[in-house]
Amino acid sequence: MTDFADFDALRAAVGAEIGVSDWLTVDQQRIDLFADATDDHQWIHVDEQRAATGPYGRTIAHGFLTLSLLVPLTSRIMTVSCASAAINYGLNKVRFITPVPAGGRIRARLTLDAVTDVPGGVQAERTVTLELEGADRPACVAESIARYLA
């Protein structure tokens, strides 16, 4: 875990890989709960019998479930303790490259790309690569923007 005690330390880390999270299992229960929360019950996510004969041989996580896991995974990599609040400002680019099968494990690799001043704090642009254990290609790559307020 890397903690940035001030914004200057955060600025100094631009261009560096900040770290890699621990692995997180994306089990069927999490997939089903996400389906309930978003009302997206497509069979490829929730019907284990039908998905067993589908293109991936089992159910897969929703792409947006995979994306939503950026928040808990990146918070295990870095904190900005000098900030009074951290806000997810948005995303510049997201690609879902490899489906995450039920029971698959993912982890985040975070690189700090830019830090710019904004009213009341700083904005950090980060590349987050969600790696899928055992896969040659990542599950997801996202350009994530966070704002840290003083």
Rank of each mutant, 00 (worst) to 15 (best):
D3C: 07
Y56F: 15
T116E: 14
K93C: 12
I44P: 05
P72M: 09
A135W: 02
L65E: 01
S84W: 04
F7W: 01
D27N: 06
N92Y: 02
D22I: 07
G134T: 06
V71A: 12
D136L: 14
T25C: 10
T66C: 11
R107W: 12
D6E: 12
A52P: 02
M78T: 11
G104T: 11
T129A: 13
R109Y: 12
D8G: 15
V141I: 14
E48H: 06
S144R: 03
I44K: 02
T2D: 02
R147E: 05
L112F: 08
A146W: 05
A12Y: 07
V71K: 00
R126P: 11
W43F: 14
R126M: 15
V122D: 01
D40I: 03
L24Y: 09
V26H: 00
L110C: 15
H45V: 07
P119F: 11
W23F: 05
W23G: 05
F4N: 00
S84C: 03
M78F: 13
T2N: 04
P101D: 06
R11F: 14
Q28C: 07
P101W: 01
A13C: 06
T111L: 08
D47P: 15
P72R: 04
L130R: 00
V20E: 11
D27R: 00
L33V: 15
R76L: 08
D47M: 11
T127E: 11
I60L: 02
A124Y: 07
F34C: 07
P72D: 10
C82P: 09
V80P: 14
L130N: 01
I44L: 06
T25Q: 09
D40N: 10
I44Q: 05
T53F: 10
T98R: 06
L70W: 02
